[in-house]
Design a protein around this nucleic acid. Structure first.
Lengths: 342, 342
DNA sequence: TTGAAAGCGTTACCAT
DNA sequence: ATGGTAACGCTTTCAA
């Protein structure tokens, strides 16, 4: 069933039928309802490919995922996608995901642009130095960044958790509780989000005239063993930390495991604060969450990002929009005052 | 730069240029190389939408994700996607992901079919009773199932881990070690994979004339707290289990936490075997993995699934292909002989 | 308010 | 081996 057949069945021109279905104002109310009814009855749906060719819009948004990025960001990324995907659907957009090797990222974007595959792209996991914004501008491909690229805050559109402030507040909480030896298990610090968390951590210390402790600072892929091994090593050192700031729930679970292995109790002997992306399979809620955390739903971020891209950037590709999401600081069972020395 | 312009630059017809670029045999070698060079020089890339309209093929594969499914399967799903995505790219296919509410799944498939959005779809997370195969057949949409639908093993194409056999072997390992009170923390058993694991678990018992113990059998969303809370409750009961079979690494981490909270040592006091999907952010490898596990890379499954779909099913939609993936049984640190009663 | 017809950029059939 | 031309199914401009 295509437009031609539908219009023949209605004894109308394709033009009128098309207009009726696409909400053009000049078609009479009666004709429109007649058309709509017949379309429903005959199960007509416009062919996507034809419409795309005719309008020049693909009605889809691209997500290019460098393998290296998604390796560790998988769960976070997926949750973002889920949020974005729902919003796309509501607006009639498709989501096209390309998983590519790192050295093929540029080629993937060039292909999207030259073949007119998608109307815009979402950029994930910006690094402190990232070439994608420049490339996408050159290609004329509208885009929104989930995160920020330093120096391009005013030149690109983005949505980002206020990572610096979140970690500054969390660190201050620990400092207020009396902790002075605070470990930081961060993500890889060439990722912008990790760099900002580090900066927030540092700032909280410096503002009180305190120094961070180099032996207690780590940056790596945020796996569970990373948390466990790092914590184990630190806790067994001559001068162990009394608290941990951790960049991911998964790593925090590793830290908790290590604390248990040392025969210590989390929240009493050792405090832990983690960032919580509110992943559905790692719930950390309840009356008193297991982990004290800085929480920001990455799913909501995805949904909001999609909305900004579709409603603001697509209609006017030169618009610059940016949005900060504040993370909540939620007190759970994993923090407590510095234990008095035994 | 489109085909017309390119052919003008070459002083050839569009027909010939198109043929040269698409590898048709009847074009002379010299012409072909001339065309290819010019195309490269001028940066020509065929417009995707036009090609789709002309060929009637969308060159894309759809993944419809019911929200309820992805809620818990997120990380597993993402890893599958990553594997599939790479294979799609290599074959020039796009991956379209639709995240929809459960009650919109049927509508989503109907839309894909009627609007000719994708050439085929991948079906995720089949339930013991699943209406999707019937719907997709009705719609004439080629598909491959990741998993199986009972009763349709010979009527549909699928790729699946041999879940039953994996859990049977793992259970036998525990029984061989002397364990007789084995708990099962399964996924929701209306999911086919969970039902098969349960069956394997049961069979291992029954083959030795043993009974499973109802109080030690659970089925739920595979979160970390599910593992911790269930294990805690069971371990504190009058007749605690001596071993756990767990359906997911994440849940197993919860079990490990509970064991620690009880002051017990995993692998010595309590044995644990988990299924390990080989997720990149939950590595369980090394010389001696933390968890004894049944391991099967879901990423490889994705890659293989994509290959089957593109190479077997698309060229001939009536083909039925099915493939079993065997899970490895890997001995880690979390299993040991039944402790002698104190 | 409605319709005819010209694109949109390919591919594919039929000639030559 | 190459070219002319008709699809593909829709949107959109121009006329009426």
């Amino acid at each position: 069933m295509n437009l031609k057949e539908l219009s023949q069945a209605l004894e109308l021109s394709q033009t009128t039928v098309s207009r009726a279905l696409n909400g053009y104002p000049e078609v009479s109310a009666e004709t429109r309802s007649r058309v709509e009814e017949m379309a429903r009855k005959l199960g007509y749906a416009p062919n996507q490919q034809a419409r795309r060719l005719a309008t020049g819009r693909s009605m889809s948004i691209g997500h290019v995922i460098p393998r290296s990025l998604h390796e560790m960001m998988n769960p976070v990324f997926m949750e973002f996608i889920a949020g974005a995907g729902e919003t796309y659907s509501r607006h009639g957009y498709d989501m096209i995901i390309s998983v590519v090797e790192d050295h093929n990222v540029e080629a993937a974007y060039r292909e999207i642009a030259s073949k007119k595959k998608t109307d815009a792209v979402m950029v994930h996991g910006p690094r402190s130095s990232d070439e994608r914004p420049a490339l996408l501008k050159e290609l004329g491909l509208p885009f929104l960044i989930h995160g920020r690229v330093p120096g391009l805050e005013h030149a690109t559109s983005w949505i980002d958790v206020n990572n610096g402030r979140a970690f500054e507040r969390a660190t201050n909480l620990l400092l207020d509780l009396g902790h002075r030896r605070i470990a930081l298990l961060n993500g890889l610090e060439d990722m912008d989000f990790a760099a900002r968390r580090r900066a927030g951590f540092d700032k909280a210390h410096h503002d009180r005239g305190l120094q961070t402790i180099p032996e207690l600072l780590r940056a790596a892929d945020m796996t569970e063993p990373y948390g466990a091994d790092s914590a184990l090593e630190m806790l067994k050192s001559p001068e162990p930390p009394t608290a941990f700031m951790v960049s991911s729930m998964i790593t925090a679970i590793g830290v908790a495991r290590a604390i248990g292995l040392c025969g210590l109790k989390i929240g009493r002997d050792i405090s832990v604060i983690t960032h919580d992306d509110a992943l559905s399979f790692l719930p950390n809620c309840g009356d008193v969450p297991i982990f004290t955390c800085t929480r920001s739903s990455v799913r909501d971020a995805g949904s909001r990002a999609a909305q900004l891209l579709i409603e603001k950037i697509l209609p006017n590709p030169d618009t610059i929009v940016s949005e900060h999401l504040e993370a909540e600081l939620i007190i759970g069972q994993s923090t407590g005052p510095l234990p008095t020395q035994a």
